[in-house]
């Protein structure tokens, strides 16, 4: 069963792409409209119903992203389709539609959802449509410790229409540590019959000031489940020490003390004498003694 659905899903995408290219080729000869490559992806973070991301690229412009055009999103049922919203594409050519509680989504008996995004085209570009078919699954993260070894467990469950939870076997799950700039991959594993993938936590991984680390588990580009992401925080990292380094060094704001003292001593020694001499000059000015002969002075 699952094979068939997967196969079907892939077929839909391929067919839609071929369809677009075919149309594009015919049209291009007449009006020289540019072909649009459309790709729809499904993402689901923790506690989220999911979001649809459609990326539009212009084939003739070396796959440059198409910015600022409207993409319409639909949920496809057996006989009809429901319009969600029209979203404008951003700089990367992506239109992002976030599914929420109020979104009316068609689901079939197994809980499968089909989404469609449509770009209608204009004078310059051809239209493009793409579909995706996904199953609702939950990816959850938990942590446990056996002896001294720390483990991360990622659990994948399908959620059927009747709210039945079915563990998923054989799905690749990737585990990352969240960094400032990127995710650091620390392993990937397939889920077992319980729907669980177990990872050993690497030793000596630094955390933040409290040793806290953000662990991210992901299912990436799965044919049936799309992209799933789930995060968890755990204080397994080595806490980093934030000692505010206050030095008096050559490179710091404040100078080394010996330098300050030396400077003060040197400058004050000189300037003291300057002031002493100014005092002397004042004394000379105030000295009103009658003039004794110069010669007498010398002798």
């Amino acid at each position: 069963m699952s094979f068939r659905i997967r196969y079907g899903n892939r077929c839909i995408i391929w067919i839609s792409l071929i369809f677009i290219f075919a149309i594009g080729d015919i049209d291009a000869q007449n009006t020289k409209k540019k072909t649009i490559r459309s790709k729809i992806e499904y993402f689901k973070d923790q506690d989220q119903i999911g979001r649809l991301v459609t990326t539009l690229k212009v084939k003739e412009d070396r796959n440059a992203p198409l910015e600022g055009v409207l993409v319409h999103f639909y949920s496809i049922g057996d006989t009809s389709k429901i319009f969600f919203d029209s979203i404008s594409t951003n700089k990367e050519g992506q239109a992002i539609f976030v599914l929420n509680e109020s979104s009316n989504i068609y689901k079939d008996s197994l809980g499968l959802m089909t989404f469609e995004s449509e770009y209608l085209g204009n004078q310059e570009y051809l239209s493009a449509t793409s579909n995706i078919r996904v199953q609702t699954v939950e990816l959850s993260l938990s942590f446990f410790q056996k002896d001294t070894v720390k483990y991360i467990s990622a659990e994948v469950n399908e959620i059927r229409l009747d709210d039945a939870i079915v563990p998923v076997n054989g799905v690749d799950v990737f585990i990352y540590i969240q960094g400032t700039f990127s995710l650091l991959n620390i392993g990937d594993a397939e889920t077992n019959h319980e729907g669980k993938a177990i990872f050993e936590f690497p030793v000596e991984m630094p955390g933040d000031t409290n040793g806290l680390l953000t662990i991210v588990s992901k299912i990436e580009d799965h044919d049936l489940y799309g992209n799933l992401e789930s995060k968890g925080k755990i204080n397994w990292g080595k806490p980093i020490l934030l000692t505010p380094e206050k030095h008096r060094g050559l490179g710091d704001t404040d100078a080394p003390l010996w330098m300050v003292y030396t400077l003060i001593v040197l400058l004050s020694a000189v300037w003291f004498h300057y002031f002493y001499i100014i005092l002397m000059i004042i004394k000379i000015k105030l000295s009103r003694t009658k003039i004794p002969p110069v010669q007498e002075l010398i002798l």
Binding site: G179, T180, F181, S182, L184, N185, M205, P206, G207, I240
Partner: peptide
């Protein structure tokens, strides 16, 4: 990257 968190990235791999 950040030496404290011990992760560096070149944009595609970490």
């Amino acid at each position: 990257g950040d030496k404290n968190e011990d992760i560096v990235s070149n944009g595609t791999e970490s």
